[in-house]
């Protein structure tokens, strides 16, 4: 896949950084405002996809990128399950129990483990959407050959 025009190439990096930061904001405030892991992860994946669309996939080693994003995704999912399993050791010993201190409602550091779940789910969703996108790009490259 070829990259786009120079104008697009100049503007996209400026935008992509902002979009990336916005995604992180949505993930970190998942327990306070609407949004959370899935929405933020989709936004972060959007930033990456924008960059790939603007600069073209020929600059990338696609197979390696897919392996990387799919591994990231699996590790994040594994962390979510491990976090849930850790609850079997602490507190009332129930799966998915919120074992960290709850804090003040409305503060950024509050709600126990929920922000942690949000962060890992955010990474997972970003990885998954990026993997799907890259896989479709690989399909396209292979069939156009």
């Amino acid at each position: 896949m070829e990259g786009m025009s120079t104008i697009v190439k100049r503007v996209t990096p400026l935008l992509a950084g902002l979009i990336f930061l916005y995604g992180i904001y949505i993930i970190l405030h998942g327990h306070l405002t609407p949004g959370g892991g899935f929405a933020g992860g989709a936004i972060i994946a959007g930033a990456f996809i924008l960059l790939i669309l603007a600069f073209g996939s020929s600059a990338l080693n696609l197979k390696k990128e897919v392996a990387g994003s799919s591994n990231t995704e699996s590790i994040a999912l594994l962390m979510v399950v491990v976090l849930a399993l850790m609850a079997l050791l602490f507190g009332t010993k129930v799966f998915f129990f919120n074992y960290l201190p709850k804090g003040e409602p409305g503060e950024l550091l509050s709600a126990g483990v929920i922000p942690l779940y949000n962060i890992f789910i955010g990474i997972e969703v970003a990885g998954a959407i990026l993997t799907i996108f890259l896989a479709l790009v690989i399909f396209k490259e292979e069939s156009s050959k």
């Binding site: 999912l77 399950v81 399993l85």
Partner: peptide, 13 residues
């Protein structure tokens, strides 16, 4: 539910 999920992700990694 947890055990097969963990081993599925471990296998992928």
């Amino acid at each position: 539910v947890a055990i097969p999920l963990i081993s599925a992700f471990l296998i992928v990694i």
